[in-house]
Design a protein around this nucleic acid. Structure first.
Length: 162
DNA sequence: CGGGTTTGACCGGCGC
DNA sequence: GCGCCGGTCAAACCCG
């Protein structure tokens, strides 16, 4: 399972700084009570979270504010839209190199919350969806809590430098 | 009508 | 400087 994640690694990390750390964890989203969305047909989720790239690029005039946490996790799911309890507005879709499938860009619609995420499906393995979160939510999800939200919450407690 | 998607244009960084 | 590449804008469009 992880050879796969490595191969896609340089694929979807192309937009990130080269030396972004990331460690891996596994979680199993078992959903006995399916609520109202069929995006819960998630078999298992291999997630890796990356630390906010520390001091890697100071090329421009010292931008100290741009270090926002980024998490990426990949999910084996037939659908692209993983409903995590937040409301997203799509603001772009691009085809990236080395991938037949487009990458979608979403932004959190909550006011004052500029969390972004991008969703990309693997070209080699179309059953895997890579979701990348960028930034922290300044509010609570408006959907009732499920596995997803709890996972995200735990991830976002992670310490920030500064 | 209000909010979310679609889609090509636009833009900035980077490598040559 | 130019062109590629990834990310964003925004106008049109869609849909409840």
């Amino acid at each position: 399972m992880f050879p796969a994640s490595l191969s896609i690694g340089d694929g979807f990390m192309s937009g990130f700084s080269k030396e972004t750390h990331f460690c891996a964890a596994q979680s199993e989203a078992n959903n006995d009570q399916v609520s109202d969305y069929d995006a819960t047909s998630v078999a298992n989720t291999e997630m890796m979270m990356m630390e906010p790239s520390v001091g890697t690029r100071e090329t421009k005039k010292d931008e100290k504010k741009d270090r926002r946490p980024r998490f990426a996790f990949q999910t084996r799911s037939p659908v692209d839209i993983l409903d995590d309890g937040y409301r997203w507005r799509k603001y772009g879709q691009k085809k990236v190199k080395n991938n037949n499938y487009p990458r979608s860009y979403y932004r959190c619609t909550h006011q004052g919350c500029d969390v972004k995420k991008q969703v990309q499906r693997l070209s080699g393995d179309e059953s895997v969806v890579v979701t990348t979160y960028e930034g922290m939510h300044t509010h609570h999800a408006d959907k009732p809590s499920d596995n997803f939200e709890q996972i995200l919450n735990q991830m976002q407690i992670y310490p920030l430098p500064n």
